[in-house]
Design a protein around this nucleic acid. Structure first.
Lengths: 333, 333
DNA sequence: CTGTTAGCGCTTTCAG
DNA sequence: CTGAAAGCGCTAACAG
């Protein structure tokens, strides 16, 4: 194992100079830089993470925990979120890994915490009253939740401003004269934000509970007229199902442009652009949201370390795009 | 941050005693153990991974790298593999994480290697001539490939004994009098092991190239009679597609028990049990295979460290189950 | 702009 | 059965 000392000797400089060349934390002459770099290349030296973490006082690593990695459907959103987190965290000079959770074993969380190699934890797919949240909190591990489970969440989190999103969507339904709105969702109960906004707009909501899959969307389309005769507008919280719904609707005698308006709110930009032109979306950039989540995580870790009590509390990502129509963006009619 | 020193002081013992209580590497009196444990509980002490890795001389951590986490389909096999690795690695006292790979960026691999916080790497979903393999090798990072990409692979790997598997499957076809065998696969070219075994049995193989999804299986069933009139036996290398094939076959006028025999070879036990009784399987325990992969990985890491030159080379998992019929196991007719 | 040095928290001899 | 002490490789003062 080559160490910093070997490099220093070869380059004819002190050990700390090597460190500073690597970290860039103090000015180094070009000549010295060059020699050190040459020595590094020659020896194949690689910095030792453990030593750096120990000496630096904190592990420059964040851990993602998500419980749905191997459970279908693997939403493209999940991928975008992971990529975004990696980018945001890296931007702050940290690294990130995913902690593998066995489906049926919460003890993995203990292990991670016990291990203590990670400076902070990003929780995804939290459920109502998630035990992991309480554990993380009581263990005083810096963490942030990406997509929180309920209103009034009292820990660090990053999420879309759903109230604003729903307002955009429902106001459009209202303007088009719709009165009964179907809600395509994977949850058995109505989203409380949506309920609140609908009340303000005096719109009736009907739950269209279905799986987030092409099949789920298709079967929702199949039963649509029978089950929801009054519904003329549909807001979809499911990115895959809505595509299934739209593409299979014609097979079940649904003429989408005439019969109803459809708005998807939980879609990536790319997904929005790939669906049929009749559908409207309030698309969002999951990657970007996750990226800021990554940054916040690192800030929280460093705040904790320096105990500067820099408040890193509720972070509500309010940025979203109001897509009038994907067709419009696409240059279509 | 409570350290080992705090615990030692509170328990009235030396620092090293605390270490030995934790590691169990030398006999400690029950009384001392109890006092140390009490002090640990009281202070909420957690061992520092970085310090342990540094002092211990090697990072007790392995990293999994898989490129298909967020690309459909998320085979149940993937989940089983991850869980198995975690178990195997943990059995040896190591931990494991997943390294998040951006879909389109190989540089992530460099970062991981540069980071040097992981004792070894388990590669999954390697492709033909995978650049990661060469990188890992040239960087001298211990690694093992789970499921290798081609015959004659010259690095550590763990995989099923496909030759044996194919022998079991094809011998059954032979015994039943089939002569033309369809191969349901996601690859555009015929598997070379399969080709070899078929030659021995004097069986003709026909490629049935399709996606590993329910839809893929369904469309294979739809075109089956037209495209492969002579085929009476099907061997499936795809766990999801075969289910789609079998369940949708009747819709396309295929009476499976009469017309042909079907054998799935890339299925988990649980999947095998859930399919229709007409199908035979040579099912396998992906979890168990991955578990031994985890153990091998750790052994390789430790071998490298102690340079005991314990040969950890080609490891061919030969264990597999010959399932005559799922119905039989199920207690069915 | 560069060198020297004191630790970070733990593991592991060596010495009882 | 237990303690004392020497590092692991790096970071970040401190001192030019």
């Amino acid at each position: 194992m080559t160490t910093r000392a070997d490099v220093a000797k070869l380059a004819g400089v002190s050990e700390s100079t090597v460190s500073y060349v690597l970290s860039g934390k103090r000015p180094i002459s070009d000549e010295t830089k060059r020699r050190v770099q040459a020595a590094i290349d020659q020896t194949g030296y690689k910095s030792n993470y453990a030593a750096a973490a120990l000496a630096g006082g904190l592990p420059r690593m964040v851990t993602m925990m998500t419980s749905n990695l191997f459970l279908a459907p693997p939403s493209r959103i999940d991928g975008a979120l992971v990529d975004g987190i990696v980018a945001g965290v890296r931007e702050r000079g940290f690294h990130s890994v995913i902690w593998p959770i066995s489906n049926d074993d919460d003890s993995d969380v203990d292990v991670l915490l016990q291990l203590n190699f990670s400076g902070g934890v990003i929780l995804m797919n939290v459920i109502e009253n998630d035990p992991r949240v309480h554990l993380l909190h009581s263990e005083k591990v810096p963490f942030v939740v990406l997509g929180r489970s309920n209103v009034g969440f009292s820990y660090n989190f990053v999420d879309r401003d759903f109230e604003a999103v729903y307002k955009v969507a429902l106001s459009k339904f209202k303007a088009l004269g719709h009165t009964h709105i179907g809600v395509l969702t994977g949850h058995a109960v109505m989203n409380s934000y949506l309920k609140k906004v609908a009340k303000d707009f005096k719109l009736k909501l009907e739950l269209m509970h279905t799986a987030n899959s092409m099949d789920g969307g298709a079967s929702a389309a199949k039963n649509f007229k029978k089950k929801h005769p009054k519904v003329t507008g549909i807001i979809s919280l499911l990115d895959i199902a809505i595509i299934g719904f739209v593409t299979s609707a014609p097979n079940f005698g649904l003429s989408i442009p005439k019969d109803c308006s459809i708005i998807g709110v939980n879609m990536l930009e790319e997904q929005a652009l790939s669906t049929v032109p009749q559908i409207s979306t309030v698309a969002f950039d999951a990657y970007d949201m996750a990226k800021s989540c990554g940054r916040i995580m690192v800030d929280a870790i460093e705040a904790g370390k320096n105990s500067k009590s820099k408040k890193v509390s509720e972070y509500w990502v309010g940025d979203f795009m109001d897509r009038e129509s994907t067709a419009k963006l696409d240059g279509g009619s």
